[in-house]
Design a protein around this nucleic acid. Structure first.
Length: 602
RNA sequence: UGCCUGAUGGUGUAAUGGUAGCACAGGUGACUUUGACUCACCUAGUCAUGGUUCGAAUCCAUGUCGGGCAGCCA
């Protein structure tokens, strides 16, 4: 069922939501706060959609909030370009669904120093979500997403605290030696020779690291945990590295930058996050997440990390590197090519955000690495579009029919239903004339068995119009069919005496004189195998027929199509205007979002 | 050979000691002015072996198979 219908879908349930529900029941937190923490170093894809819907879903189901936070601790890989695209994609995906849970902070705000239970503390809360949406829609922009880089000052203070507690030290090992000392999964590491430095020396060295006295990689700040731990992430993992580069958000203030494991848990804490939900590859990091937080004796409730399996979709690739290759090798036209699994690509293809949400909800949340059948995704898209898309007549590969008993110049207006799924369907007028186009596939001179469509001597209904009979094929000297001559039985029109006459087939059509030319881009899956990621060379399994461009004939009403409109071209599939389209004077450009199901598999 | 984690029809997911259910896919039929939608019916599953129990997908043990971990990436 569509989200727009009266019966709302039941709230999803999964092991993480169960945990949250327990915490709500025991009133462990004043408010449930989650976060979506992308690094601004690439475009969001369908896998991120699962994480976004989980985090925002938990927030909206519990009257909570979900912060959009950029995990921007590595300036050498990041760029504001991605901050903008990610922000756009997130807001598109949650629009009309969880906007009221979106955690944004006052523009330019940094954590405030407060006192909690007599202890110093840092906290950065969101702007009032009820005022946020109006701010965003008016573009007054007094709010913005959270940024981990806004906490660099506090993170530095916390690092000093760790040093004073003897829980962190400055290490002079080279990156190569650090690796060697770390040991291997089945072999313990060795203590760094710098592990026993005094607190005073560590303090001095760390401050000088910050002051820029040392070159990149010369020293690092490390946690002091256990070099023999069976968990590799507890073998004195690095907290800070030296990088003499400016930061896209923090400017040129810093030459030391915190690492993920150190910055993430503290960012969660500073924002008051309660449930930090991430993917399975971070399970081993959870011990470190907890270690950092617990080592600091923080005065407020600590956030906790929970992990789920990321989405893997059949016939789809989401690897940043491989997607980049597709763009660079011009296999696709860009990151928002409608064949790409990026949110911008899916959006351009015409897939509604609501369909994406419904899809990721339907696959569930577990700790099992699974491969989701692309059919589940396609079903969600079709199901959603079937509810909302207006029907239109369009012919992709036209063949000319002459209705010999209709005089040239005569226009018969017929009523066509806009959406049969609607409780109160409306209609529009479509012109029927002497010459019409039908789909090339809908005529067969030598029909296969059980062929319901037009064939020599056969009858078929032109949808919304009347039944026609194929009388004659006109050929040129070479024997090629140049014209299909039919007679129209006007008594079978709506309201006609023979309206109830049955024929096996009903086909779509467009008047040859009252129509519109349009470029229509027919997309198919980008890869020919279910698991392109498992391929030694994924470029070899790119579907050579993933795009076919045709010049189609459309009914006239389509001239008024707006970018957000979704149409079903009857018997063909769902289509949406491409962003290339609104160029004045040039024909409209439509993208095929997805075909209709076809049970008449040839 | 270390640690972490997982295993239910073809696929995904539920059942938290008490009738193995749902969705997708597939099949058959009905309906149809979309070979769509809708509806009905069908196909098909607890990784293995032991144990506890009146009763085990669920608890225990052992094994098998899969995924993750040795970035100064996130």
């Amino acid at each position: 069922m569509s989200e727009s219908t009266a019966t709302p879908a039941p709230a999803p349930s999964d092991f993480i939501r169960d945990i949250v529900a327990t915490h709500v029941a025991e009133q462990r937190y004043a408010k449930i706060v989650t976060r979506f923490p992308p690094e601004p170093n690439g475009y969001l894809h369908i896998g991120h959609a699962k994480s976004i819907c989980l985090n925002f879903g938990i927030a909206r189901e519990n009257h909570g909030q979900c912060n959009l936070r950029f995990d921007d601790t590595n300036p050498v890989k990041e760029d504001v370009e991605y901050v903008d695209s990610i922000t756009t994609d997130v807001r598109w995906l949650i629009a009309g669904w969880a906007d009221h849970c979106l955690g944004y902070k006052p523009k330019g705000a940094h954590p405030a120093k407060t006192t909690v239970n007599g202890q110093p503390d840092y906290y950065l809360g969101p702007v009032d979500p009820s005022t946020l949406s109006s701010q965003l829609s008016t573009g007054s922009a007094s709010a913005e997403p959270f940024f981990a880089s806004d906490y660099f000052d506090q993170l530095y203070e916390y690092a000093l605290t760790l040093i004073r507690k003897g829980k962190a030290y400055v290490c002079d090992l080279t990156p190569e030696d650090t690796d060697k000392y770390r040991g291997a999964p089945d072999r313990p590491g060795q203590d760094s020779p710098f592990r026993t430095r005094s607190v005073a020396e560590n303090l001095d060295l760390f401050q000088r690291m910050k002051a820029g006295e040392f070159p990149n990689g010369a020293r690092s700040l490390r946690s002091k945990i256990d070099m023999a731990s069976p968990n590799m992430w507890l073998r004195d993992p690095l907290l800070y590295r030296i990088r003499h580069v400016p930061h896209h958000h923090a400017g040129d203030k810093w030459c030391i930058y915190p690492l993920y494991d150190y910055a993430h848990c503290l960012s969660d804490y500073v924002e008051g996050v309660t449930h930090s939900v991430c993917t399975l590859e971070f399970v081993d990091h959870r011990a470190l997440y907890d270690w950092v937080l617990e080592s600091l004796d923080l005065p407020r409730a600590l956030p906790h990390q929970y992990e789920f399996a990321k989405l893997t979709l059949g016939y789809t690739l989401v690897s940043k590197r491989k997607l980049l290759t597709l763009v660079n090798e011009q296999v696709v036209t860009g990151w928002d090519d409608p064949r790409m699994p990026t949110l911008s690509g899916l959006r351009r293809r015409g897939i509604p955000a609501s369909a994406l949400r419904r899809f990721v909800t339907s696959v569930g949340v577990t700790k099992f690495d699974s491969l989701t059948d692309i059919a589940v995704f396609e079903h969600a898209v079709r199901d959603e579009l079937n509810q909302v898309a207006a029907r239109r007549l369009a012919v992709l590969k036209p063949v000319r029919i002459v209705l010999s008993n209709i005089p040239a110049g005569e226009v018969i207006e017929v009523d066509a239903t806009n959406n049969p799924q609607s409780d109160t369907p409306t209609t529009r007028k479509v012109a029927l004339t002497r010459e019409v186009f039908i789909e090339a596939d809908d005529f067969a001179e030598v029909p296969p068995p059980k062929y319901f469509r037009l064939k020599p001597g056969g009858e078929v209904r032109l949808k919304y119009a009347c039944i026609i009979k194929c009388d004659e094929l006109v050929r040129d000297a070479a024997g090629q069919i140049t014209e299909i001559r039919c007679t129209a039985d006007l008594t079978t029109r709506t309201g006609g005496v023979n309206v109830d006459k049955k024929v096996k087939g009903t086909i779509h059509w467009v008047s040859a004189t009252h129509c519109l030319d349009a470029e229509v881009r027919l997309y198919d899956r980008l890869f020919t195998v279910p698991e392109p990621a498992a391929e030694e060379d994924f470029l070899k399994v790119v579907n050579p027929k993933s795009l076919e461009v045709v010049t189609a004939k459309l009914e006239l009403s389509l001239a008024a199509t707006k970018p957000e409109d979704r149409y079903q071209f009857e018997r063909l599939g769902y289509f949406a205007l491409d962003k290339d389209s609104p160029k004045s004077g040039s024909p409209l450009v439509f993208n095929r979002t997805i075909t209709l199901r076809d049970n008449w598999a040839k």
